[in-house]
Write a protein that binds this DNA or RNA. Structure first.
Lengths: 202, 202
DNA sequence: CGATTGCTTGACCCCCATCAATCCTCGTGG
DNA sequence: CCACGAGGATTGATGGGGGTCAAGCAATCG
């Protein structure tokens, strides 16, 4: 199993503020998992007991609404960390993470990393910063959902996908989503989303 | 000016984990302001440079959408703290706070409280917990906005108002909102919101 | 090569945004 | 004390966005 100290994705997230010593300890107790496309990383209602650090692949993070439809809240990829909320609260997860492509994921148990949270202020500050950024982002999404038309939301989503995942020389996005997933990101019926998508291509 | 050490609202928020010594220091540098109904506490684009602790009154926290309509994200009252994000990021505020009733608000400058954030792990943990809770809540709101009808959202809002502000013996809510504000919470036109509201009364 | 899953298209109609007109309420000044 | 004006609260008419259902088509997999 590879070592956290040498892992490149670490540079992308809050773990970069851990000391070498802390990293070796984390490295010793982490477990690495492969998750196939379509499988879930964790589900709503589960006890997380740790955080997940994505080595490769893409996952959607979603939540079921009471009328039985899935709402995708955001997407995560290489370098992203998910499950930080489990570190500060003992509640079960309110989100579900599902692999959109095959993934490599490292699981770091809560007991190990929580000591760093209490003793390394740099690390804590980084986690705080990330939460603050997520919160700001969530506010924007709420406004968009509440006030904008499906067409506008579709445009926002395409921009989001482009800034997060980029596109190749032929302007094709570096991420493949099913029509249903697209609709579940912007919160609409699949049919309407697609209709507007084809309009955009002109 | 009254002292933070004796302030009751402190027990309601993260400040409760500060030591007596820290509190006296904070108390010395805080400024207390009265804000009349309709005036703004701070606006989008402002540099906050500190946090606000509400002593009394109610404020709506909102954000303008690009099509010029206001979206209210949440309401705050006695004991709530707002502006924590300014402690961890140097960006300008993305939100606006407006008094819905006359208010008493204490302002604590960033320089003072940030040292506590770095040196008192209890306090930091409390701030983290509050952010985690806000984030979880924001996720729920996103799902509601994206998937539920105006009628369902109206019902959710009434529940929210009741749990947050309570009601008197005659089941009248302890908060008075204009029709426009009601509409701006659930993200709809004023007329539709009111139509459904009258239905509920039956 | 069937069979299951996902994509596309169209018809229908309900929810709700928009606009407009009227009514109520309350603060202001005469 | 009353008249008046302005902002808020109701009510209604209208049209379009988009949700829902259904059927046909393409693609993928065992």
């Amino acid at each position: 199993m590879s070592k956290c100290e040498q892992c490149i994705v670490r540079q992308l997230n809050s773990l970069k503020s851990l000391t070498k010593k802390e990293l070796t300890r984390i490295s010793g107790c982490k477990t690495s998992v492969t998750i196939k496309k379509g499988e879930t990383v964790f589900d709503e209602g589960e006890h997380l007991n740790g955080v997940y650090c994505i080595s490769s692949g893409i996952s959607k993070v979603s939540k079921m609404s009471s009328n039985g439809r899935e709402q995708i809240l955001f997407l995560i990829q290489k370098g992203d960390i998910i499950g930080e909320r489990s570190l500060v609260s003992d509640e079960v997860s309110n989100l579900k993470a599902t692999a959109i492509s095959d993934m490599e994921v490292c699981f770091i148990p809560k007991e190990e990393i929580i000591t760093d949270l209490q003793e390394n202020p740099d690390f804590t500050m980084n986690v705080l910063k990330k939460m603050a950024a997520s919160l700001k982002n969530a506010d924007n999404v709420i406004v968009d959902m509440a006030q904008k038309t499906v067409k506008q939301r579709l445009a926002e989503m395409l921009l989001y996908l482009d800034t997060k995942f980029g596109h190749d020389a032929e302007t094709v996005l570096n991420i493949h989503l099913s029509r249903e997933d697209i609709a579940n990101i912007i919160g609409t019926a699949t049919e309407s989303a697609i209709l507007l998508l084809s309009e955009f291509k002109k």
